[in-house]
Nucleic acid binder design. Structure first.
Lengths: 132, 132
DNA sequence: TGGCTAGTTGAACATTCTCTCATATAGCGT
DNA sequence: ACGCTATATGAGAGAATGTTCAACTAGCCA
């Protein structure tokens, strides 16, 4: 039994009065089963969260969802206070993370928030509380 | 007119055939109105996203929501592969971000995911697609 | 009170990020 | 083809982050 589980064993002893090693192993197994599997979703989730968790990128996505339509880069530029280059980097990252779509129209590029981006923002909006 | 808007002016000329400065100013105003206001929600949103956008903290929150009940620190420790200290830091950050609640019970501490944390994870789950 | 245990906190270092500048690509009009 | 424009890309400097180690607080029990 690895040293990390000593505390768990003591907790379980307190909870149930007594406790055998089998119980601890069982509890441990069920806890482990809750850990997100490595390859599938978590990577994509983490990427999405990391990408959206930046002032510039968050602001851009808010802008896109508030607009409710695709916006040209030149419409985003005057509103977000960083260099053209930074905005381009941000949009590229957002695109890679699956948070915006890209459409070319001549030399113009139009970006639009994806359902995924909107869902995250909606979740935030619906749970933002001043109380609690 | 600031240099950043020159491109927007050209875009609008292309769109509508012609375009006067007033139109540009108007479009700019409406774009600006989409930008999230500084003091209210955005800070809390960004904090939540940044906090959840880290492997350790994400894993912990997934663990808590999958368990569907509060967990003792000593139940989290054996499942997440970083030091006790790192987990404590992580839980502290999550608490500050409003993503977990804390309950003391003697020397044990129990943590549980908040509605906000669950809402974000649900949004991610519901929009994670292999296609597109 | 003294010792043991659960968990927290601070400092420090290594890594990662995010911006800007400079340069590159690509579409359009002449 | 050429020049102009819209946007993208790469490199690099400075800031921010995440982890660990070491020291600390607080609760319990003898």
């Amino acid at each position: 039994m690895c040293p990390q589980t000593e505390r768990l064993e003591r907790l379980m002893s307190e909870e149930s009065g007594e406790c055998c090693e089998t119980d601890v192993a069982e509890r441990l197994d069920s806890l482990r089963s809750y850990r997100p599997e490595t390859p599938a979703g978590p990577d994509a989730d983490l990427t999405a969260l990391k990408t959206l968790g930046n002032d510039t990128r968050y602001t851009i996505v808010r802008l896109l969802t508030a607009a409710g339509r695709e916006l040209c880069v030149c419409e985003i530029n005057p509103v977000v206070d960083v260099s053209d280059s930074a905005i381009s980097h941000a949009l590229s990252d957002l695109h890679d993370a699956g948070l915006v779509t890209r459409r070319k129209d001549g030399t113009w590029r139009h970006y639009e928030a994806t359902d995924r981006a909107e869902a995250i923002l909606t979740a935030l909006d619906e749970t933002r509380r001043t109380d609690r």
